[in-house]
Design a protein around this nucleic acid. Structure first.
Length: 617
RNA sequence: GGGGACGUAGCUCAGUUGGUUAGAGCGCUGCCCUGUCACGGCAGAGGUCGCGGGUUCGAGCCCCGUCGUCCCCGCCA
């Protein structure tokens, strides 16, 4: 088979573009052979490009030469078609394709390139396993679904750029090769050839640079910034990812919320979803208390504190600790469970709790004992009263009610960690919600704004107690400003556990989309924070001396936020893994299966970099 | 670092209690076909059962180890 050259031929139309009104037009389309249907003297080729698919007809009587070439064509061959658009005859339309009212009658067919039989067909909707998809990513990306995802990603990024630019933000690039920033994750390091033994670090975020841009007077900055973190992966975590990173001067927290809401609204608008703004807000304390997690999924009803429905006497009868909270929640519309299902559920929940001291009450079974009917009713009434948050629906017998009770003789740690019980119950709430997703259908997409429940979580704690090292760590990062009154009151020193940060997360359907804060703009406060984190002045000076210096030259109050672009697109695309919206992602072991990275390097390279490999596998 | 699931033809998967020559659909190759669009018909090719070791008369199946992919915890905003 001889291949044809493109020569002077130019494409006139995209495949997906042709419609009935194009009938009679002479066209040139180019693309890949999606499918071939050979009827002997008549061959149909479905030709595909980015825009879609169009049917090409090759009739031996019209052009024997083109027909002969079509006989040789196979899936994924690259072809150019010269021909005429024809309105299909009555009854031969294909309503399943956008171009189904027409076809291109070919007078010439050019085979521009052949193709090996692919390991899986980009024409198929069914997906090969991910290992194969990632190894042959170029074939995977030809699939319509992937083309759609990356078109969406492009549009979202364009909208955000446009919005922020319109709001006076300047897009400024910051370096990839820099020095370690204190985000808390492990750094990817780049050895320096010129400075043996020294390394650049790839940025975990452009944090310090964007703050310095505020000191530099740019007023408003943004960047579609690649960030790198050498930590273990998850479905929603890749070692390199993209953030919409922004910073502004003289902001109230609310000003930053309005900007983020604005660009999210623009981004979701491109997907045809009008999200309501402003988003609701909730403090970190309330999120833990009512949802047991700092990123509540607002599609599900909150937890309810049922402590008061249990009198001291009842607690004794039911062997429940007197002082500890009793929390309940409902999973809506689970429907009635059979005895077997209920027993399996009991075992499952007990298995999840293990021997940590938590147990739970089955309200349905409570009702079977006359003595406990009033309790069951009180619980039902309380759940009812609190379910206002869930669309005003009343609690019914179709809703699964779980009441978690701390048993007598509970572990001592609860006494000083007030978050332990709510977090544990909150985790169970999510687990059961996932288990019964098919029944309650609250996670199903309806195609409306109700699918996307945004939330601001505010007033995060400034410090977190690190059990392992017996010290206070920065909960966010050490450039986050505490509340002003926590500074003036001296709590920074006297009561670290109660210091609130001017830090906030934006949460969507239980996923953290982004995180930001008002920053420290005074050197004395910054030094105090470094000190309170156990950093000596010398240490602070050696790591962040340049930044402390910069703070001394007229630093305006400033703050910002960064949102994960990959996660935004993932949720909009209805995907459950970032790999569906990152063109060349890595596996759970951080490997690129296509290029086979990381890879060993030659002795020459390591010698040049003054490196020696201690252990070669 | 820990827990779980998976690994059989190019792809998706079946394979019973350990028992003869490991199957199906799709794809692929050849031939036939002028209205298909997941075209159809006939014929055919295609297997290191992830890899290594063990138990056994006999292993795709049981045991141990190892590698890879995915999910979760730890870790990570």
């Amino acid at each position: 088979m001889t291949l044809d050259f493109l020569g002077g031929l130019e494409r006139t139309h995209m495949c997906g573009q042709l419609r009935a009104e194009d009938a009679g037009r002479h066209v040139v389309v180019m693309g890949w052979v999606n499918r071939r249907r050979d009827h002997g003297n008549l061959i149909f080729l479905d030709v595909r490009d980015r825009s879609g698919i169009t049917q090409v007809v090759l009739d031996r009587e019209i052009s024997g030469e083109a027909h002969a070439k079509a006989e040789a064509a196979r899936p994924e061959f690259v072809v150019a078609v010269v021909g005429t658009v024809r309105r299909r005859e009555a009854g031969m339309d294909n309503p399943n394709m956008a171009t189904g009212e027409v076809e291109v009658v070919a007078t010439r067919l050019l085979l521009l390139n052949d193709a090996r039989t692919p390991p899986f067909s980009p024409a198929e909707g069914a997906i090969a396993n991910e290992e194969v998809r990632l190894k042959y990513r170029y074939l995977d990306l030809r699939r319509e679904e992937m083309q759609r995802n990356f078109l969406l990603r492009h549009k979202v990024a364009q909208e955000i750029r446009g919005y922020l630019s319109g709001e006076g933000f300047l897009e400024i690039e910051t370096p990839f090769m820099t020095r370690s920033t204190p985000e808390g994750a492990r750094d990817y390091l780049v050895p320096s050839r010129v400075h043996p033994g020294s390394f650049y670090a790839l940025p975990q975020s452009p944090q310090i640079f964007k703050q310095i841009l505020m000191i530099s007077g740019f007023d408003r900055y943004f960047q579609v910034a690649r960030c790198f973190r050498d930590e273990d992966l998850r479905a929603d975590r890749q070692p390199e990812f993209t953030q919409i990173d922004l910073e502004m001067t003289f902001p109230k927290q609310e000003a930053i919320f309005r900007v983020a809401e604005g660009f999210l609204r623009a981004a979701f608008g491109t997907a045809g979803v009008t999200i309501p703004t402003p988003f609701p807000q909730m403090t970190y304390d309330e999120a833990i208390r009512r949802y047991g997690i700092d990123k509540p999924d607002m599609r599900l009803p909150a937890m309810v504190d049922l402590s008061e429905t249990l009198t001291p006497e009842l607690r004794i009868t039911l062997k429940i600790e007197q002082e500890l909270p009793v929390l309940g929640f409902t999973i809506p519309r689970v429907g009635s469970l059979s005895g077997t299902q209920r027993r399996a559920l009991v075992d499952e929940i007990r298995g999840i709790f293990g021997d940590c001291g938590l147990d739970f009450l089955d309200t349905a079974r409570l009702r079977t004992n006359a003595e406990f009917v009033p309790l069951a009713e009180a619980i039902g009434a309380k759940l009812n009263a609190e379910q206002i948050v869930f669309g005003g629906e009343n609690f019914t017998n179709d809703d699964l009610a779980i009441v978690v009770t701390p048993k007598l003789g509970t572990p001592e740690r609860w006494n000083f960690d007030s978050q332990w019980i709510p977090k544990r119950v909150g985790a169970l709430r999510l687990e059961l919600a996932k288990k019964y997703a098919d029944r309650h259908k609250l996670f199903e997409k309806t195609g409306t704004a109700a699918d996307f429940r945004f939330l601001w979580v505010t007033d995060f704690p400034m410090y977190e107690w690190n059990e392992e090292h017996s010290r206070w760590d920065a909960a966010h990062h050490p450039f986050t400003s505490p509340h002003e009154e926590d500074i003036t009151s001296g709590r920074l020193v006297s009561d670290k556990g109660r210091v609130r940060a001017l830090a906030y997360d934006v949460v969507l359907n239980g996923t953290e989309l982004g995180s930001g804060s008002i920053r420290i703009h005074r050197k004395d406060v910054q030094q105090e924070i470094f000190r309170s984190l156990g950093m000596t002045n010398e240490e602070a000076q050696s790591r962040f001396g340049f930044f402390l210096d910069a703070l001394e030259y007229g630093t305006p109050p400033h703050g910002g936020i960064a949102l994960g672009l990959d996660r935004i697109v993932m949720i909009l695309a209805g995907a459950t893994s970032l790999r569906e919206v990152i063109a060349f992602p890595k596996t759970a072991k951080a490997i690129d299966l296509m290029v086979e990275a990381p890879a060993p390097v030659s002795e020459t390279q390591t010698r040049e970099l003054s490196l020696r490999i201690a252990h070669r596998p």
